[in-house]
Amino acid sequence: MPDSIDIRYVATLARIALTDDEVEVFGRQLGDLLGHVNALAELDTASVSATAQVIESRNVLREDRPAPCLDREKVLAQAPQRQGAFFRVPRIIAE
């Protein structure tokens, strides 16, 4: 199993800005953790299926009928920034 972790790259994927100190500390701590989880390589899992969820899962359907949902004003009141009925974000598409 691979046991190194490129913290800067992973932080980019995870959308978290890290300080240099965090890169150093997390790099060490997570490298250490990967060393521990690599013990799983000792298990013979060649013929074992993966378990995503332990309880029997089934497709859950319901009638496609309108029902009350969360109140729009109440939800938008929690937005960091809003504009009318919308969440406002920094410009995404250039002018």
């Binding site: 199993m1 972790i5 992973v10 890290l18 997390f26 799983l40 390589a41 074992v48 299926s49």
Partner: peptide, 30 residues
């Protein structure tokens, strides 16, 4: 929380998914 997001992102990232996430799911079966 940052540590766990980072380790989880790593375990799910391209090239590591089978070695970490799928292997852990198999261990879960065992």
């Amino acid at each position: 929380v940052k540590r766990r997001i980072l380790i989880g992102t790593h375990a799910l990232s391209s090239g590591y998914y089978d070695a970490y996430y799928v292997r852990a799911q198999k261990a879960r079966t065992l």
